[in-house]
Design a protein around this nucleic acid. Structure first.
Lengths: 241, 241
DNA sequence: CGAAATGATGAATTGTCCTCATTAAGATCA
DNA sequence: TGATCTTAATGAGGACAATTCATCATTTCG
């Protein structure tokens, strides 16, 4: 409207790394806030101080941007996982840490987790992505915990490992979502304890280590009674008529 | 192009029910084939022999159409569930049936399940939908199975019910997806057995019902030995030096 | 300093969902 | 039966977001 007809446009050029970093940071924030489909590329571009079209110089398309964002987040998350875990000993403690950490992640980044579960994991080519590989390494450690528990004789050896893995992760996810939906409040510590307990002990009632098995107690008592009787009567041990 | 300039357009009018039925059937097919975002309304309209705009006379928008499709499918699915379940007795058998059925559903309609998990369940207003209510009733029956197992003394009574529910459903879903992704082949029967077993028994090694507790066996043997000795010696029962 | 190479731009294109003024089919009534 | 009214169906067009590309700005290099 005002007379800036022949104004030369300003163009700022930064290093490739810096641009990629800016765009991914902006994308992560916007995706976290609005989800995937409700996040217009224009929002991301604006927040990154870039024009829409420029994004396509660094990312194939919107989906590729999402994948890279999640990948980046995942890497940061898992960076210290192995190390932390190696500092914990005992099957139960290690399982508990793994469960606790997984729950905590969902609790702290529900939006990004949602993107992962809604848009990355169900995609056809998921098993070709880097996130898949990261995840594989992550869950491999869980399988390893179980395997060493079996070797130590603490855990049953007749259970399909993958099923156990699926049970643990499935439980965590399902449980966290129902909580996030607003059923009760969230206590990762208590929940982690309960899940470990349930996975290890199962639902069935366990017979406590019985003080004395009834049939044996009976036989013992009879033997003692007979002993006493014999001691008093001088019997030779043949049953009384 | 060819000279049909003033051709009167043909309009067919059907009952409201019939139109809704046609559109939902077409939508279910197209959604199943292409997912949600990759299913253009034009495809659905074409398959239903309707023009795009007409869909909006019966459904608020694309999402509403999806919700109604899933609702409809869910209702059909759960119609006989309660009845089937009431024909099965025993905690283990009932749990197994519930698990088997859930797995089977995912196996037979992976695409529709995906829509449910990806687009319906995570939505903000999920807990206001009819599907949510249906699902609630569905999982309530699972809680009921467990509750009656507890009452019968078969199951532990110190376990949070919701956690058990989450564990079962989470396990089924996670497990089925990893299978559908192509890791191994799918055997609902074997898997259902394994899941029931794991949920009931847990991971930990169970001490088998010992034939005789060692300490008791020892005492028994000693008693018998003493008996014999006494019978031979005419001892009064005081321990031998 | 000039030319070539590369990066950034935003206008234009495309593909969808969705709206709405217009038209056709069927219902109602004289 | 024919005129009028009601309402369903239509499809052209609006809105909006992803993606492309010809053009121009900046940097690099001889």
């Amino acid at each position: 409207m005002s007379g800036n007809g022949t104004q030369k446009r300003q163009v700022t050029r930064l290093s490739r790394e810096r641009r990629v970093f800016d765009i991914m940071a902006a994308a992560r924030a916007v995706f976290r806030e609005k989800g995937y489909e409700d996040a217009p590329l224009s929002d991301i571009a604006e927040r990154a101080n870039v024009v829409e079209g420029s994004i396509y110089r660094y990312f194939e398309n919107k989906r590729d941007l999402l994948v890279k964002v999640i990948e980046d987040w995942y890497e940061g998350m898992l960076a210290d996982y192995g190390q932390q875990l190696s500092g914990i000993s005992g099957t139960r403690n290690r399982l508990r840490y793994m469960i606790w950490r997984h729950m905590n992640t969902i609790h702290e980044e529900p939006a990004l987790c949602n993107l992962m579960f809604q848009h990355i994991r169900p995609s056809r080519d998921y098993s070709q992505t880097a996130v898949f590989q990261l995840n594989r390494e992550y869950t491999r450690q869980t399988l390893e915990i179980i395997r060493s528990g079996i070797e130590a004789g603490e855990l049953r050896n007749d259970v399909p490992l993958r099923l156990v893995r699926d049970m643990i992760y499935g439980c965590i996810e399902h449980h966290t979502w129902t909580y996030l939906r607003g059923e009760g409040n969230f206590d990762p510590d208590a929940s982690a304890d309960a899940i470990v307990d349930l996975v290890l002990s199962g639902l069935q009632v366990r017979v406590p280590a019985e003080p004395v098995r009834p049939d044996i107690a009976e036989r013992l008592e009879k033997a003692v009674a007979r002993l006493e009787e014999m001691a008093l009567s001088g019997d030779t041990g043949a049953p009384a008529p």
